[in-house]
Amino acid sequence: MTQRFVQELKKLKSDVLDMANLSKEMLNESIEALKTQDVSVAEKVISQRKDIRVYDNQIEDDAKRLIALYQPVAKDLRTIITILKMNTYLTRIGIYSKDISRDIKAIPKDNGFPRLKSICLMGDLVLDMLDDVIKAYETEDLSLIEDMGKRDDTVDDLFFTILRECISYMIENPNSIGFYTHYMLMARYLERCGDHVCKISEKLNYMITGERIIIK
């Protein structure tokens, strides 16, 4: 039975990796769409929302089955619990990517309001963080995520800068309120994605060492 458990756990772990890569792809594309204003890319991300849901349900079911049938302990149990939590965080990242894409579609084009470059930079930082946390999960190399807290602080700083910037533009020209509200929301979604990456990092640390750390 151990053989079967090991096989099934391996499959579960690789399913989460696939899901993580899908979330990353969605975030990456939504940031691309943000940079290029390409609505077709944004539409693709929106359509991928349903794929995330399929992973979400399937991983939860498989994890539940493994716990019920094999009563795993120690690292096996920590891994499954971490996978369940990652499942949620990755789903959120996928949904935020979809939300960003929705905003991109809703932003009116060529209305003359200055676009915010800093939000693209913020997106790239969050994407790098996500990339590293996925690598850390794959390789169990914790050094990849040891400075996650600091990196997320930078993301948070950018978030507040963008908020202030948007508010200044809004005050300057109340006609731009609708336009910049989209930017504020997108910045907020990216900030949330950064937090979820930090939570995944905490769980990975727990999975690998059994010790709990607090990043955020």
Binding site: V73, A74, K75, L77, R78, G210, E211
Partner: peptide, 11 residues
């Protein structure tokens, strides 16, 4: 012991 044992053999 069951969550995070010290010894690899136990785990």
């Amino acid at each position: 012991i069951f969550e995070n044992p010290d010894e690899e053999l136990t785990e």
